[in-house]
Amino acid sequence: MTKESSVAYRLYLVQREVIKYYNRIKLKPYNLSYQHYLVLMVLLESGPTPVLQLGEKLAFQSGTITPIIKKMEARGLIERERMKQDERIVQMRLTDEGHELIIQLNHIPEEVLAFSSLTPREYTTLMHITRKIVSNMRY
């Protein structure tokens, strides 16, 4: 088997190209990275989220999530708050500025999909296949 016929290699290439497109074309005007964008999306969907859970939802390692949070906090997009029930737990939440920004970026996934030239049927198939791979590869 060659790398070109390897599923893992093809998925790696797709991921790399999609993230590069987001970073260089879609998010650069907003001075955001793809990782920052994902944090904003998760916090919009989930509301205030403990740092540990945020890292898990995004599959970030603990060493990755901390610098991302610090940069986003310094920019005023998110803020930390200690949970009243257990002050050891720090959760992140969107600031008003972060909320407004992610709402402004709401159009991006559709634009990226359009740029990919996938048909609606291909998109549905891709989503089904990727969900299946992820659920079957978990150990």
Rank of each mutant, 00 (worst) to 15 (best):
S6G: 06
L13A: 08
E17P: 04
K57W: 03
P109Y: 06
K20I: 04
E56H: 06
R75Y: 08
Q104G: 03
L58R: 03
L40W: 12
G76P: 03
Q85A: 15
Q15H: 13
E87Y: 04
E73V: 02
M1N: 03
P67W: 04
A8T: 12
Q61E: 07
R131H: 15
V42G: 09
F60Y: 14
R138A: 07
L27D: 06
R121D: 08
Q85T: 14
T49C: 06
H36A: 15
K132P: 01
L118E: 04
E17V: 11
R121V: 11
M83R: 13
N136G: 10
P67F: 06
E97G: 05
L101Q: 08
Y139V: 14
I69P: 13
G47Q: 04
E122I: 00
L40E: 06
L101H: 07
H107P: 02
G63K: 05
Y22N: 12
P29H: 07
L43I: 00
L38P: 06
I129V: 11
L13N: 15
A114P: 00
L27N: 07
T125P: 02
Y37G: 12
T119R: 06
L105H: 09
V18N: 10
I103A: 06
E17K: 14
S62E: 13
S135N: 12
Y139G: 10
R24P: 03
V134H: 14
M83F: 02
H99D: 01
E79I: 04
L94Y: 04
G55C: 02
H128I: 08
Y123C: 07
K20N: 08
K84P: 14
Q15I: 05
Y22A: 11
S116W: 00
M72N: 06
M137G: 07
V134I: 15
P29K: 07
E111V: 04
T95W: 03
